[in-house]
Simulated scan of single mutants.
Amino acid sequence: MFHFFRQLRRKLLSNSQLSRYLFYALGEIVLVVLGILIALQIDNWNDQRKLQARQATLLTDLRSDLQETLDGLQFGKSLNAHTVVQYRFLMDAIDQNAPYSEQIDSAMAWLPMFHVPRFTRTAYESLKSQGVDILTNRTLKNQIANLYENEFPYLKEDQTQLEWSLHNTDKPVYINRYLRYRDNGDIMVFPVDFEKIKADTGFINFLATLIAIRAAGIEFYERTMAKTEEVIAGIDRELDNLE
């Protein structure tokens, strides 16, 4: 091919066909430019494919972490919701001056328990180390950042702190006063003096506060779960687009 062009160029020059030679030279320049542009376009395509592959890997890992977090939040919400049912049963029994029953023992057994949320951050930290701007979907990028930087910290550091505060102050007082741990080889049993509990205004106020904080926490669990599901759905759509 190049040998042919060289021969053609010599022939045109030897015949003094300057206009044709200029036309030929221009065509040769155009071919070179086109070749460069095609090479650049191929490089751009390759870079784009590499970027899409990196995004897909990061988003896949992030989705896995978020699903694990979502499963944990679902478990925590269910556990905390069950405790609220038990606490309200206990409060109703006190309000109605009900006699002691084994069901009251069962309800009291849930007093020390509450769920602390855990968030899997491995993929998000990897994303931050590479630069969040690697994600080209701006809306999804903002949703992910908001979830990890605002929603998760609020549930763990703010809402849960209310539980920890009560757990470390009033709760031990009443647990030590009215509950006795006993290992029967299967579960911990909690014999209680229910008549003293019904007469203890401090315990009743503590129980009411516990119910209010726990119920509010469940609402924040639900809100965080909804935000997490929204981001997972956005990741799924973006992964489809990257295929």
Rank of each mutant, 00 (worst) to 15 (best):
E28H: 03
H167E: 14
V32I: 15
F23D: 13
Q48K: 09
F2G: 02
F220P: 07
Y174L: 01
N146G: 09
S64M: 03
V84W: 00
N137W: 05
P112W: 02
P153M: 02
I144S: 05
I211V: 15
L179F: 07
L135E: 02
M113T: 15
A56F: 07
R177H: 02
Y178A: 01
K227F: 05
K11D: 15
A233V: 10
S101M: 07
N137G: 09
Q74S: 14
Q74I: 12
L179R: 00
E163R: 14
R237L: 04
E157D: 15
I204P: 02
Y21F: 13
R20V: 06
Q161R: 13
R20G: 03
L51E: 02
P172M: 07
L58I: 14
R214Q: 12
D61Q: 15
L242Q: 01
M188H: 11
K77N: 09
L135N: 03
A212T: 13
Y100V: 00
K77A: 09
R138V: 14
T139Y: 04
I175Q: 12
A93M: 05
N176P: 04
G76Q: 06
G35A: 08
L207I: 01
A25C: 11
K50D: 10
N168S: 14
D92C: 06
M113Q: 14
N176M: 01
T209Y: 08
D240N: 12
N205W: 06
R6Y: 11
P153G: 04
K128W: 10
R223P: 04
L111G: 00
L207P: 04
Q159R: 09
T83K: 05
E229Q: 08
I36R: 06
A81C: 07
Q48Y: 10
T139N: 10
G27N: 05
D183K: 10
L79K: 12
Y181D: 13
A107R: 04
S19H: 12
